[in-house]
Each structure stands twice: as C-alpha cells, then as structure tokens.
Design a protein around this nucleic acid. Structure first.
Lengths: 189, 189
DNA sequence: CCCATTTGCCTAAAGCCATTAGGTATGAAC
DNA sequence: GTTCATACCTAATGGCTTTAGGCAAATGGG
C-alpha cells in the first residue's frame, strides 16, 4: 500500500488538467482515481464527493483566470485595456477549455461571494471607469461585456463559427473595436 | 402488458418538458421511462440511447425556438426587429430553460447542418440586412449578436446578475439600444 | 375470422459511476 | 519502540446505460 500523497489541492489541480484533456463534464471521481492509480474510495478522504470536487476545480479556475486578467490589465487603460481584458479571457479559454468550462459552474451564492468571481466583477468595473459612464449604465455595461465575451467564447469553442470562412480572430477584434466605440459614444451622451 | 404508445416524437416532447422541470442535465433515459411508467429498456426501441435522446430534444428545441423567432420578426424591421429578435430568444429561455439549454448541445457538423440552426443564422442575417453592413462586417455582426444574446441569457439564468440590484430587464433594453446604435454607426462608416 | 408476422414492452444481466462503512497498514510523535 | 492519526483499502449498495433475448398485443393477408 504505497502512499501517493493525495491532498484536496493536488486532486483539484489534477482535476483541472483532466478537464482540459477530456472536458469538464467527463471529470469524474473515478477518472481522477484512475489517474492517481488509486482506488475510488480513497478520494473521499480528501474531497466530499463529485460535487465538491467540481466546485473546487471551478474555484481554482476562477482564481487562475482572475490572475491572468489582472496581469493583462496591469498598466493599461482605455481601449488598450479593453482589448487586453478580452484577450485574457479568450486566451484562457483556448488554452484551458476544461477549466474555462469549470469556471461557469453555478455556485451557490455563499460560495460565489467568497470566490474569485468578485475579482472578475471588480476588474470589469475598473476597466469601465476609463469610459466614465454614469452609474446605472455602468452596471449595464458590466453585464454587456460579460455577456459578449462569454457568449463569443462559448459559441466559438462549441464550433458555432466553423461553417463560415471568416476568421474568428478578425470578428473578435471587430467586436472589441465596436464595443470600445459604443462605450465611448455612451460616455459622451 | 398495456401498450403505452411510445414513439420517438412523444419521448422527445416529454424529454423537453422534463428538461424544463429538472434541467437538461437531469434528463435521463431512466427518468423518462419512469415518467411513462415503463421499464427503461423499452425506450431503446424508439431512441438509440441517451445521446440520441438528447440530440432529438436539442433539435426539437432549435426548431421550436426558430419558429418563435420567425413569428417575432414577422412584419418588423430596423430596431423594432432587433428588439423583437432579442426578446424572442430571452423569452424562450425564460419560459423553457431546459429546452434552451438543450439547444446549446454541441451537434456534430452533419446534424447541425440539417437542423434548424441554419434558420437561426438566416434570420440573424435577414435582421442585419436592415443595417446595411458590407459583407465581412455582416458576419462579424452575426457573431456578435449571437454572442451577446446567448451570453446574457446564459449569465442571467445562471444567477450571475443576482448580486446587483439593477433590474436585468433594464440592462437588456439598454444593451439592445446600444447594439442598435452601434450597428447604425457601423453602417454609416 | 384466424393465423402469422411484426413490434412494443418486458426480464435479465453486465458495466460504469458515486457514495458509505469499516478495516489495515504506514508514518510521525513521544 | 509503542502509539496514534490517517492514508488508502475492501466490500457493498444503488443509480444510470446498454444489450440480448422473450412474450404478448396489434396488424393484416388469406
């Protein structure tokens, strides 16, 4: 009985890697046990169960993604910041599709409130400060940016753009440009 | 042995209803058999299996949603059409969350090509004709509209907007307004 | 109208996943 | 070196999926 040295953290990291390889939906307690060459029941000493494992992976991905976005945003402002912000999310999703999917997991309000999710919201607001929108509109804009970027990434990764010849990268840039123009127009009004 | 009269169509419809009640992820061959008070194996005469069932529900939802959107679009143009288009999707997702989720199921390219998915794309293009965009941009705009609306609906249904007091309906209207303005600006340029 | 064939639904069984209960051995601390 | 916590194990239950093979109800040709 060789001790492998499992911990909740190692399981979470391995789960994140597994998610990137086979998809978040296929991340299962059994598959993870197999990967560590350990019996399934052994994992239950470290995580409460399947749901707990998935939640941990989601929180890990949210935090990692927030770090990336924060890095991308550092020292930038205006349209430059907007593009860096957008690319940080899209790049993360392309490099780590499973983790990105994990980050979309519905968390219960309490867990969500203590997650890196709030950093994402804060960074979006910080970004928008550059556009000087009055308060109700700032919230609208936060929601809109979250929607476009998340929606695009989700459709792109789902192969939704595969049937057209137009380069998704070009559409992405066009979209970021358009959003910048739109936000500047709204600020002026 | 009373015959219940199962067919692939009845199973699909019942599956769609079940999805709305318990979520698309919980739609299972077993649950559906239970609902018809029939043994699980009996369903396998009508659908190939779990994946087939889910695909059928997805195709059903895509078609139903396309019908709704087509109705909403009839006789409208410009911003009016844009708002009706957007609302048709959002209303469908709110009335039928499980079906809306089903409609996001990744289909293999062949199935997708013969699904109502193409009608969705066609209607989006038709809608955009009102804005008179040159060709490469039209594709960008199709993608952008799909992204914003899908993204918003997905975040809203996931409770992503629950922590702020601002009415999601107001943000939605603001977003539609902003998109309309943006598209008109792009047409002019 | 009846018999044959189709076919709708069944039982049985195997495989995989999740989860819990309770056992054994290992590594650390005294 | 003995003790004690704990890391990992075996065993067992229950759910979902899928396949194979059987019986009976519907259907239709003679």
């Amino acid at each position: 009985m060789v001790r492998v040295g499992l911990t909740a953290e190692r399981l979470t990291r391995a789960g994140a890697e597994l998610a990137d390889e086979v998809g978040f939906d296929e991340v299962t307690v059994s598959a993870l046990a197999r990967r560590f060459d350990v019996k399934v029941a052994s994992l239950y000493s470290h995580v409460k169960g399947s749901q707990d494992l998935r939640t941990r992976i989601a929180l890990f991905a949210l935090a990692e993604m927030a770090d990336r976005v924060a890095d991308a945003l550092a020292g930038r402002s205006g349209k430059d910041a907007l593009a860096a912000f957008a690319d940080a999310y899209r790049d993360y999703a392309r490099q780590h599709p499973g983790r990105y999917a994990a980050a979309q997991l519905r968390l219960d309000p309490e867990t969500a409130a203590s997650s890196a999710g709030v950093r994402h919201a804060q960074m979006t607001r910080a970004l928008l400060r550059g556009y000087d929108l009055p308060e109700p509109e700032q919230t609208h804009a936060v929601r809109m940016l979250g929607s476009v970027f998340h929606g695009y990434i989700s459709l792109e990764s789902g192969g939704g753009f595969a049937h057209t010849a137009v380069d998704p990268q070009v559409s992405w840039s066009w979209m970021v440009d358009s959003l910048d123009a739109m936000l500047r127009a709204r600020a002026a009004s």
